[in-house]
Amino acid sequence: MALIEVDALSTLFPSGEGDLRAVDGLSFAVQPGETVAIVGESGSGKSVTVMSIMRLLGAATRHEGAVRFEGRDLLALSEAEMRKVRGNRIGMIFQEPMTALNPVQTIGSQIAESLRLHRGLSRRDSRARALEMLSLVGIPAPERRIDEYPHQLSGGMRQRVMIAMALACDPALLIADEPTTALDVTVQAQILDLIREQARKLGAGVILITHDLGVVAELADRVIVVYAGRKVEEGTAAEILDRPRHPYTRGLLEATPRLRGGGGHRAGRMTEIPGNVPGLAEILAGCAFEPRCAHAQPCCRIERPPEVPVAQDHLVVCRRAEPVS
């Protein structure tokens, strides 16, 4: 059974010009122990999706669909019930630890606080467990660091602290929103290794939000590519990265800067995806990528494209895709 099942989720922000649909009928599931990457550019709705799952958007936001997790619909829970899920059954790692951590509280007491709240541990036991978590995530000299404040740590160390917090209550699901985007490249690999290893140890499912296909290749089992709040392609990481079928996924892969690994003397031009991501207020009756698509036909503008299975575990939302025979 799926650990979490997101079923036709839409997220609507009310505005003067009517509701803005940031997430538009998105469905996916994560199995226990599986890492699913949601890939897209800014404005694709990938971060809004996890904010909706965690119910972290303001009261004015409207949701449609369902988010089934451990037998309940998270969208139907009261705020008090939701608080028991966040940081407990679902751990979160954000892009910028400096804004996610409390600047005036020591890192040890931040980790211990969630253990006392969710697990009912005593002051002494929660501190012992916090120390254990800090050493687990590779903080050097944890017995000294535990009483330090976030600003006393480097960016990579802060990200480790946030991972320690996210893991402290043994969550069933870990949500990592651009976990290495703000980090240096030589630290990025360390943090990705840590997330992979800890998720495996816990047997937790992971939802990885990223714009970076290199990070996807490192961490993900399955990939969902989103564009303008809609899913355009879904499949195993190997299928999506090696045999992308949607014109947008192909464009993203070609536009991703990568080292050429020697040979040749002119690096030359990068492959572009022409045009821009549509704004939230734009009404898109047909395929959202149609205005930028080199393969678009007149009907693509009028009608939503169908979901076409093109291989086992590979789905493309495109009229031009040829179904598997």
Partner: peptide
């Protein structure tokens, strides 16, 4: 440390 999206183009990484 530069990550490549192609699984076929993974290389030996020097972990600092």
């Amino acid at each position: 440390a530069v990550l490549d999206p192609s699984p076929a183009r993974r290389h030996a990484r020097i972990m600092l």
